[in-house]
Design a protein around this nucleic acid. Structure first.
Lengths: 153, 153
DNA sequence: TAAAACAAGACTATATTAGTCCAGTATTTA
DNA sequence: TAAATACTGGACTAATATAGTCTTGTTTTA
């Protein structure tokens, strides 16, 4: 019952882009250092967000990323879903609602109810709410990377 | 954002014991096969539940496990907490509410809010609600163990 | 006192997480 | 038009977590 590091980082990236004026194009490098997300991991995450249509990417020299939707229309559920896939809670809720066993399982409907509740909570929290507190740029706490890969030579 | 297998199994075990009349003592073996929980894993899980005071254990020949509290007083949150530890959602919420960085982190309070919401959802779902549907014994769907350890010889 | 259960914890294979790295592609600018 | 700059895609990896099993010991009953 925890979100993973990648999701936390993704939230940070989206938050940073939401905070830029007029959807300004920002390099992964800047986002990464501002939000304390390991550089190359940030790239990967931004790519996922880009494919999902949450951020827009721009290639080439003056390239970078910009926010693709109004913060009002981006929720925590969106981010979690993009990074971790559909919120399932229990494996038996994966793949099309039914594990094929649900009619006989007394717990199944309750997992289902819980999931719906959790989804609502996450969907209600949209990024415009973050910005209320944060106009325009509050510093992000350093987050020590959990693991650092030894750069081979 | 998924509960793990062990928690699912724990819910099954508690559910089974809640369904027994008068808190009857039931062997781990019976619970295990009725609920399709791998035998020795079930033992381990029942031990955790026992230490947490959710089930009671009885040693010796006529030993086994019985439910230790009224189903009304056992919630999904209890089970998740016993098996997975305090629901943290994000690592930065672990260990005493604060990562020491929270005053400067714009996201922290929102993770906190989400966690509170999730906890409430899980706390509201108590085991008496399962029993409404299930008097006294609905079969449990078989759950193929994810991994089977090769019995060495 | 033997047999039946649980208790505690060491042990293990596999999967997932949390990243890194590199070869390629698009875009701008000198 | 060729560098230089920045993203793209995917292969790769070490560390950790998950999902169990196994063994030795203890308690209780008949």
């Amino acid at each position: 019952m925890q979100i993973n590091r990648e999701t936390d980082y993704a939230v940070r990236c989206v938050l940073y882009l939401c905070g830029r004026k007029d959807g300004a194009i920002t390099m992964a490098d800047e986002i990464s250092s501002a939000m304390n997300v390991p550089r190359s991991f940030a790239s990967k995450i931004l790519q996922k967000l880009s494919r999902a249509g949450i951020v827009a990417s721009h290639q080439g020299v003056k390239g970078g990323f910009s926010i693709a939707r109004a913060p009002r229309n981006i929720s925590m559920l969106d981010i979690v879903t993009v990074i971790e896939g559909p919120l399932a809670l229990n494996v038996c809720l994966e793949s099309g609602e039914s594990c094929g066993l649900s009619p006989s399982c007394p717990v199944h409907p309750y997992w289902h109810t819980l999931r719906t509740g959790v989804e609502e909570l996450f969907a209600e929290l949209t990024f415009d709410r973050f910005l209320e507190d944060r106009l325009p740029g509050k510093p992000m706490p350093p987050r020590t990377p959990l693991r650092t890969k030894k750069t081979t030579k």
